[in-house]
Simulated scan of single mutants.
Amino acid sequence: MRRLSPVHGYLATANMRANSRRLAAAVTPIVLAVAVVSVQLFSQSTLSAAAGRQAVDGVVADHVVTGSDGGVGAAVTDELRDELGDDATVTPVVHSQVVVRYNELGDPAQAAFAAQGLDPAGLDRTLDLEVREGDLGDLRDGTVALSRSASATFGASVGETVEIVLGDGTTIEPTVVAVYGRGLGFGDVTLPHDQLAEHTTTGLDSWVLVGGGDAETVAQVTAEHPGLVAGTGSDLSAAGSAERAAETSSSLVAILALLAYLAVSVVNTLVMATAERTREFALLRLAGAARRHVLAMMRVEAAVIVAVSVVVGLLVALPPLVGLSFGLTESPVPSISPAGFAGIVLATALIGFLAIGIPARAALRLRPVDAIGLRE
């Protein structure tokens, strides 16, 4: 700071060195606010980014048929199979929400999870769920496959049973036949296609994956059915994305409320710390510093406080974000949203500069000879 601003930087650094406790008192609430908001924002962005990557990486099909009007009917799947023949694998995928009942720390618990239903025949040509245990080829009525996260949550591995409530309230207790890694992209629960579809409201498939086959034939069949679109795996959204978006919106409201509370604490601390320096400002002016010099010194101090608060706050948030990322994605690198990071920096700077600048200007309105006689 002294190199950048020999006069104002010198005054600011001398003040901060001499009053390190005051600096710490000003920085601490901002660090808390930055850390809390960072964990909330970047945990959501890490989850969404991982789900999107899994959805794209897991689809190995050459063609993907989706419906713009809510889904794809079973007749389209049958027609694709008839037209493409044995040279192609056609895998319809239906999505739903299920409720799983399980024990958590010895107490009964239940929660809703994104589920998909699919036919395991020829699945290696259309979908790669990254199987860790068991075999998806064993998926049939009375069985289920779980994501790695769901398997750990339910305490159910291959060969054990889980209690699942389907969309229409039907309760089943299937046996786990496989555990896979890409649960964020495709849902935590995978059931046989026909079993899940018959318990949904419409019975329509979300996607139809086609491995192999002629692209023109797929396009021709799709064109014969208004509302259908033929594309690639990159066009798909991750399973449960709508639910996660809703959760993100509700979390954002909670974050804003928490941020408002923390902002009040931060502003109070900074305003009080600045207002108490009226005699200090008067002494500087009596020693020869102009009003603009004192204001420039305070801007330098505010910049230091904001910079230190952002850096330390992000460092405090890093361990929980790394742990969360590793637990969900098996990667220690969290996904930090550039927009979220920029928002945190701008909000911190706005609060810091205003909460320091306004009371400093108010304190400088007094004549130095009058202000020097005031009590601390």
Rank of each mutant, 00 (worst) to 15 (best):
E330K: 10
A260K: 08
G343A: 12
P334K: 09
E280R: 07
A339Y: 12
T348R: 03
T348C: 13
S331T: 15
S335G: 10
A273N: 15
V333D: 08
A347C: 11
A260H: 10
V333T: 13
H293V: 03
M272A: 15
V266M: 10
V312M: 12
F353P: 01
R299A: 11
Y261D: 08
F281G: 02
V266K: 02
L295S: 12
A355H: 11
E280L: 05
A347F: 13
L270N: 10
M297T: 06
A303R: 00
R285P: 04
T329I: 03
V271I: 12
Y261K: 00
I351D: 02
R277A: 06
L258F: 15
P319V: 06
S309W: 11
G323R: 06
G327S: 06
P320H: 09
A296F: 00
L350W: 14
E330Y: 06
S309A: 15
A347K: 01
I356A: 11
A257Y: 12
V333Q: 11
A339I: 15
A296S: 13
M298H: 01
V310D: 01
V300I: 13
A263P: 07
A282S: 05
L321V: 00
E276T: 13
L314V: 03
P320V: 08
L259P: 00
I336W: 07
F353L: 13
V266T: 03
V312P: 09
M272P: 02
L354E: 03
Y261T: 14
L295Q: 12
V300C: 08
S265V: 14
L328R: 07
V311S: 10
V304E: 06
L284Q: 14
V310T: 07
M272N: 14
V271N: 11
L270A: 05
M298T: 05
L262I: 02
V264E: 10
V333C: 03
I336E: 07
N268E: 10
E301Y: 01
A303C: 04
R277E: 05
L315S: 09
E276S: 15
S265Y: 04
L315I: 12
P334T: 07
A296C: 06
V264L: 14
S265F: 14
F341T: 07
V310Q: 01
G352Q: 05
M297C: 01
R285T: 05
I351A: 11
F341K: 05
R292N: 11
V333Y: 08
P334D: 09
E301W: 00
L315E: 09
L270E: 07
A296H: 05
I336Q: 05
V294C: 00
I305V: 15
I356N: 01
G323Q: 10
A342E: 09
V310C: 09
